[in-house]
Computed example of a mutant assay.
Amino acid sequence: MKTKLLIAFLGLTLFSSSYAQVEATSFMTDLNEPSAIVNQGNVLYVQGPKEIYRIDTALDNPSATVVYTAPTDYYMSNLAVDGNKLYVSEEHYDDELDEFFGGRIISIDLTVAAVEPVVIYTTTRYISALAVKGPFIFFASETDPVGDDNFIVQIQRIDTTTEVAMPSLFVDQLTQDNAVNDMHFNGNVLLMSVGGDSVVYSHDITSGSGSATAMLTGLSFNKGLFVSGNTLFTAEGNSIRTRSFDNASTWASVAVNTAFQDSNNGIPFNANFRDVVLIGDKLYMTLQNQGRVMMIQDTALSAKDFESLKGISIYNSRTELNINGLESNQMAAIYNISGQELVSKQVSASANSFDISSFSNGVYLVKLENGTVFKFVK
Rank of each mutant, 00 (worst) to 15 (best):
T3Y: 12
T3R: 08
L10D: 06
L14N: 10
E23A: 12
L31G: 04
E33Q: 12
Q47D: 00
E51Y: 12
A58R: 15
L59S: 09
A64P: 00
T65P: 01
D73W: 03
D73L: 09
M76Q: 14
A80E: 10
V81M: 02
E91T: 12
I106W: 02
I108P: 04
E116R: 06
R125G: 00
A140P: 04
P145E: 12
D148R: 11
Q154E: 15
Q156P: 00
R157S: 12
T160E: 03
E163A: 15
L174T: 01
Q176N: 13
V180G: 13
N181Y: 13
N181V: 02
V189R: 10
V199H: 07
V200R: 05
Y201V: 08
H203M: 06
G208D: 11
A214T: 02
M215D: 00
F221P: 00
G224E: 06
N230H: 09
T234Y: 00
R241L: 07
D246S: 14
S249I: 11
T250D: 12
W251N: 06
A255M: 10
A255R: 08
A255I: 01
N265I: 08
D275E: 11
V276E: 07
G280F: 13
N289S: 14
V293A: 05
M295D: 03
L301K: 08
L301E: 05
S302Y: 08
F306N: 15
K310D: 14
I312D: 05
Y315V: 08
S338G: 01
L342S: 01
L342M: 13
S353P: 00
S360Q: 13
V366F: 07
K367H: 06
K367V: 14
N370V: 03
G371P: 11
V377Q: 10
